[in-house]
Design a protein around this nucleic acid. Structure first.
Lengths: 210, 210
DNA sequence: CCTGCTATGTGCCCAGAATCACAATGGTAG
DNA sequence: CTACCATTGTGATTCTGGGCACATAGCAGG
């Protein structure tokens, strides 16, 4: 497809729209939503929403708005969420375990298919979901067996790059990195960082301004 | 100060620079780093770094580079990290507990001073740090007593807005929101969202493209 | 003291993204 | 069937932010 012309920010917003649409669905109410209303819920400009959607086709009805259920379906399809995705997670500390147990992943079709840790005491331990922790030495092999497509890194920062390199060898096509370091990238593997201390630093900056 | 003219992206990058500088410090080596080298570590353009810093003054030595220790100190000061920040956290599920236990917060000067949950079974339970879980009904009162400045929301999405509204009444000056909803904002309170399912959706999109 | 080298600080330009404003169009009521 | 209304889809405009390139300035060596 003509992927590269679409702003990354648009994709991020599509994801946010889908959350809002899900909420609208569970709340019941009218089966239609206008770009104006959806914009309020998402904190963006109405024209922004229409333009974002325009990249992918025409989804609305003029004079009416967007049919919530259908639009949600279409957006999920655009995002590639009409299939399940297999996740491999490394670093089963507090955060790692919390992520595996977290509801939102499963709900969106993300499934943890293998988990790793370097600590020998943790190997073989079963998580709440029944998933068993494997030694990190076996990462490449187990990832291939379980057909992991996305790697999740929850290790301390000094270990993160090494784990990423192994993921590159599997190979996985994407990495979600929770460690506060900038990973060296690799052709064919897309990296997304989740760094909440960065977000906190942002808050600290704005608070110390005013 | 002349806050508003500075791009949000610049602040985010400053935070990333500070991580890289911390790593350089612990690794030892030369006491000086060039914008070129730092740019490699952070995955950005060298000119970008110089321009980001230029918003706040002159920190380098021409022909030499930046003194790591001093630059780190200066950046932390810019970000408002030369003081400790008091955090209040709501929703002590897996994720909430993991955050309280997480090392990186304390290291950067973020301290959890109170914790809340709606589940009566959890009230009074002590966390690993010695922090005791309070009933969410007492949020406003306890936040004031403990001088909480930033609120952290780890509740399910349907509860998040209600918690935010209480935080507004305290008032806190910032909220770090882990729930996958767009919170209604409030004058004087800055909100930062940490939504890793959005990041995952981004990955899913790019992977289903190629 | 002077010359050359290196890396910063910064003015200028360009690209991309957000917003505005309007034309196009489907639905509805009379 | 026709006319009107509401809301989408989109061309044009504006603005923010990133990158290039050069002038500037500190340091080292002779």
């Amino acid at each position: 497809m003509k992927a590269s012309k679409i702003p990354a920010a648009t994709i991020t917003r599509l994801s946010i729209y889908s959350r809002a649409l899900e909420n609208l669905l569970t709340q019941g109410g009218a089966p239609v939503v206008s770009s104006k209303r959806l914009a309020e819920l998402c904190g963006v400009n109405p024209a922004q929403i229409r333009k974002d959607l325009a990249y992918f086709g025409q989804f609305g009805v003029r004079g009416v708005g967007y049919y919530i259920k259908e639009l949600l379906f279409d957006i999920r399809k655009i995002l590639g969420l009409n299939k399940d995705w297999n996740l491999a997670i490394v670093g089963m500390g507090n955060l790692g375990c919390a992520l595996v147990a977290h509801q939102n992943f499963a709900k969106q079709g993300y499934r943890f298919v293998c988990a790793f840790d370097a600590d020998p005491n943790k190997i073989g331990h079963k998580l709440a979901t029944g998933l068993e922790i494997s030694p990190v030495q076996d990462l490449i092999e187990v990832c291939r067996e379980t057909k992991a497509e996305i790697g999740v890194i929850c290790t301390p920062p000094e270990r993160a790059q090494e784990i990423a390199n192994r993921f590159y060898q599997v190979p996985v096509s994407g990495i979600l990195n929770f460690a506060p370091v900038q990973l060296q990238t690799c052709e064919g593997c897309k990296i997304e960082n989740v760094d909440f201390t960065v977000k906190l630093d942002n808050l600290a900056y704005y608070l110390s301004m005013s």
